[in-house]
Every structure is written in C-alpha cells, then in structure tokens.
Design a protein around this nucleic acid. Structure first.
Lengths: 189, 189
DNA sequence: GGAATTATCGACGCGATGTCGACTCTTGTA
DNA sequence: TACAAGAGTCGACATCGCGTCGATAATTCC
C-alpha cells in the first residue's frame, strides 16, 4: 500500500538520527550520548533534533521497539509449542543471545533505565513476554508434561529475568547452554 | 582500640552526608538526587560537599559497601555448608530479600550504573560472590551431592544473576520460595 | 505563484556539575 | 598563650547539557 510518493526530507533525517544512534551505541556509553551528537551525526543542529524526537529517550525507545519485535519473534516457536522441546528452546535462546550481542548497550540500557516513560514501555514488553511464558508453563503442567512447583507466573518471572540478566552480562553460546539446562531442569526435572 | 579522642567535625559531616543520602534514597529517585540536596541535608553548602566526596557516585559507593557486606554475611552459612540444605538456602535468600526491600533503590542503581568506577566496584563484588557459589557447586558435585551439568561457574552465574534480577523486580517472600525451588532443582534435581 | 506546511536554526534560560581562591575555624605545640 | 598548619567552609566562576521560542528558509499543494 503506497502511502506516499517520495520519502520526505524529514523521513530521511529521522532515519539519519536513528542510524547515528545505532552507530554511537556501538562506541559510546549510552549515558554519554548527547543530543548534540545525534543531531550532528544526522547533519542538523541540536535544536533541529527536537523537530523529530522529544528526547534522547524517545530515540532509544524507537530503536528498542525494533529489537523487541525480533526478540518476540525469536521465541514464538517455543512459546507456541508444548512439552520439553530442547531444540525450540535452544533456538529461541540462541537468537536472543545474538540480539544481545548485536544490541547489547541498547538492551542493557533498556533493562535498567530510570526514565519513567521508558521504564513503563519496558515493563509493558517484559510483562507481555512473562505472560506468554507463564501460559506455556501452565499448559505443560496441565498436560502433565511439566513438574508441579511454584506458580507459573513466578517461575516464568524467575526464568525470564535470569535470561535477561545472564545475557546482559554475557550473551555467549555457553550461556545459551547453561540457560537451556536450568530452564529444562526447572520445568521438567 | 581507641583511635581518636573525639570524632572530628569532619567525621560528623561525612556521616551526615551519608545519612542524608540514605534518607533521600527512600523518597527520591536516585537519578534525581542532587549534590545540592546532599549538602543541604548535611548542613553545608554545595561546594563544601566536595571536601568530603568526589561525586554523588562516591557517596553511593560508600553506602553500597555496607550493604554488600551484609549481603555477603547473609549467604555465609549456605556458602560454607554442603549438600542440599533447604533451610540454609532459604535463610540466605530471605535475608537477601529483606536487604533488597530496605535498600532497593541503591541496589538497583548498583546493578546497572554505567559509571565506570562504580561498575568496576560492582563487578568485583559480584565476581567474588560468583566464585563462592561456584565453589559450593563444585564441592557438592565432587561429593556426589549435586547433579552433573553446566560448568559450576556458568551455573553459578545464571543462578546468582537470576537472584539479583528477581529481587530487583520483586523482593517478596514468594520470590524467595520460587528462587529456592529453581536453585534446588537446578543443583540437586 | 502564493498560502500552507514542513524543516531548520540561533539565542535564551535553566539546572547541575566541578574548580578556585579566599576566608574562618581548630588544634597542637613551642 | 600565641600562632602556624591544617581542616573546614563558602561564594563566584566556568562549563555543559537540556528544552523552548520565535524567526526564517525550504517544500509542497491548490
């Protein structure tokens, strides 16, 4: 569905800001990225930046949006399956690890940002993910595939947060193995 | 061992700053605490603050030092034991949860601060804790108490980071139960 | 080809940080 | 006890990053 004939100048600039942010995240601690840098990278003045985004945080949020989607897609297969499915689980974790490797600074920032607006967004995303995992656990339990134990929501919270925390510190393949093992043991014994 | 006759004026002020920080942490988001507030709370001018601390971060670090010590002490009993010891484990986790309830903002801040100096301190502390847990796991394994599985260091990392992440989000008694269950299942089946 | 809309900038005011030099206490000691 | 050295304190700066405003330039659309 063609929305507009040509990308407006503004669209280009907006992308330029986003791209600059992506690049900077690779080399500069997120806390030290300044609106000046973003604007300069996009070839506009600092005050011009505000035409496109309300704040630095808004930029990060836009970036995070994309990554969060990939993250969700990566887990879909395991989430939709049932019973102990090592392959699906490992694949989901492996993709997740890759995303953490590629977007570490951004995701780490997302994980702990104090900014209320940002925090709300994060909690919303995490909450959704948590619910899906909890549902998966409840399903397995009711079908007799998974062991009884802590409430599904609680267990989901522990495992999901473990995943985030471990990948934040070390998104390696070994970490994937370890998480796989802990998750399977916690759910299926 | 009496070190000094009287606490010097400076010592008192330093404590006053620390106390002010403690109080503020209970009511103001850590990111919004300003040196002004700290100084005012201690009854000195903003520039006077710098006589005692190099920065806001230095104050937080001093506070964290204390809490970290309590945290370590809380885990000692379980760390020094061996085999599946639900009581010791639960007690360690329960005390930990209490500390998170009491010092949540500070600990959360510590968990994610970007400040390089602070981050180094944190990693040092976490690293030490990780090693102790890894040693505990290795010991249990070699004595045949714990199941084989991922390398002790890896497993320790996953479990410890899970603990931090879960308590950061929710240091409740239910969380203690859940963590207890996951840890025991991961180690002893 | 001119009115609306879109894009851009410089200048301003704000709040926080950190530094400096000067001033005032305190304290030990000659 | 006087007084020098050090401890403690402060106000005045200089700096930086943020966000806003009003003016202006570029573009699009009728």
């Amino acid at each position: 569905m063609a929305r507009r004939k040509t990308a407006t100048k503004g669209d280009i600039r907006e992308q330029a800001i986003l791209n600059t942010a992506r690049e900077l995240l690779g080399s500069v601690p997120v806390g030290q990225i300044t609106i000046d840098m973003l604007a300069a990278g996009a070839g506009i003045s600092r005050s011009g930046f505000y035409f496109y985004f309300d704040s630095k945080t808004a930029v990060l949020e836009a970036l995070l949006d994309d990554v969060a989607e990939e993250m969700g897609a990566a887990a879909r297969r395991w989430l939709d399956g049932s019973g102990d499915d090592p392959d699906a689980l490992r694949e989901a974790l492996a993709v997740s690890a890759r995303l953490w490797r590629e977007h570490g600074p951004l995701l780490r920032q997302a994980l702990l940002a104090e900014d209320p607006e940002f925090a709300e967004f994060r909690e919303h995303v995490v909450r959704g993910y948590l619910n899906q995992v909890a549902a998966r656990i409840a399903r397995d339990r009711s079908e007799g595939d998974a062991l009884p134990g802590p409430a599904p929501e609680r267990l989901a919270q522990a495992l999901v947060r473990m995943k985030f925390a471990v990948f934040a510190a070390d998104p390696s393949d070994e970490a994937v193995d370890t998480l796989c093992a802990v998750v399977r043991r916690s759910l299926y014994g």
